[in-house]
Simulated assay, not measured.
Amino acid sequence: MINKKNMIQKNEKKIGFFSYLKKKLIKTSKNISKEIINLFKKKSIINEKLFNQLQEKLILSDIGIHTTKKIINLTKKYIQLNKLENSSQLYKYLKIEMLKILLPVEIPLIIKDKKKPFIILIIGVNGVGKTTTIGKLAYFFYKKKKSVLLASGDTFRAGAHEQLFSWSKQSNSLFIYNSKKKDSSAIIFDAISQAKKKQIDILIADTSGRLHNNSVLMEELKKIVRVIKKNNNMIIDETMLILDANIGQNSINQLKSFHDNIGVTGITLTKIDGTAKGGVIFSLANEFNIPIRYLGCGEKISDLYLFNAKDFINAIFTDD
């Protein structure tokens, strides 16, 4: 029998979250949909001039040249097939095509309960919000009744250990760091041993963040991967790259560098509430097809959300 009260509560919660997401993505929405809406509302004749204008607006929205060309080509084919005559008929189609770009990367992170610990390696350059995201992730899993251990493997940045320790307290997680060890891989090796001994569900390991083209950083990350495998043949279940939405198309180079060197299995896009460059998410999805796990939208420990392609599209494409 259907419980109507529970259904109503779920719907209210969904509507509440969508309204919240819509507010958080308002800068990206203005940069993408408002410009496109204005273009299509003119009911212009469909010609090459219109496509040039659309292409310009998409590129300026940080969607990127390659992804923009894909969208333009698909739109042209759609017009020819359906014999459309004015641009006002294109808006809904454009939303559908852009949703198709994001749907393949809407893959949530599945925690394997039988494997303890489930190891998540956090990577990324300085300033993208790695440590903050770790705290939010820990809290996210804590709410799901999972035990979490945070390993402070960032031996490069001053104050990194203190910051992570603070997040561990806020998220009700365990914390491990050895000030006598300056090698990230050694700290993370010890963390795995402790997590196995205490039967911890999830181990989240922080790493040093430097420029993505820093060879020292990449070699350090490769060493961490090798050391983890030596710990009774353990594997990294998730290599999560943290990207700052504010840097727009520069995040493409970061992802390429990290993925080529150690392999990225998931992405968290942070600070998306404070930027107009959220359109980069389409380039990330289209060019790499790597799962986008979470969006960081705010400063509170609870401000981490599972990526949902349809919600994202509806939040940025609005006629309001």
Results as ranks from 00 to 15, higher is better:
M1Y: 14
I2N: 11
I8K: 09
K13M: 11
F18C: 10
Y20E: 12
L21S: 03
K24N: 14
K30Y: 14
I32L: 07
I32M: 05
E35V: 12
L39K: 11
S44H: 12
N47L: 09
K49G: 10
F51W: 05
N52Y: 15
L54M: 02
Q55H: 14
K57E: 06
I59S: 03
I63Q: 07
K70D: 15
K70Y: 13
N73I: 12
N73A: 12
K76W: 04
L84P: 15
S88N: 12
L90C: 08
L94F: 06
K95R: 05
M98A: 13
K100A: 04
L102Q: 11
P108V: 00
L109T: 02
T131K: 03
T132L: 08
G135E: 05
Y142R: 04
Y142C: 04
S147E: 02
V148M: 01
D154P: 00
T155E: 08
G159E: 06
W167E: 00
K169R: 13
S171I: 04
I176V: 08
I176D: 11
N178L: 02
S179H: 10
K182S: 14
D190K: 03
A191D: 04
D201P: 02
I202V: 09
I204E: 01
D206L: 05
S208L: 07
G209I: 10
G209L: 06
S215D: 13
M218Q: 14
E220A: 02
V225Q: 06
I228N: 01
I228Y: 00
K230D: 07
N232V: 14
N232F: 15
N233E: 04
I236P: 07
I236Q: 05
I242Q: 07
L243Y: 03
I247E: 09
L255F: 09
S257P: 06
G263R: 01
T265L: 01
T268E: 03
T268L: 10
L269H: 05
K271T: 06
K271V: 08
I272Q: 10
D273W: 03
T275K: 01
A276N: 03
G279T: 11
L284Y: 11
E299H: 06
S302C: 08
S302F: 06
N308G: 09
F317R: 08
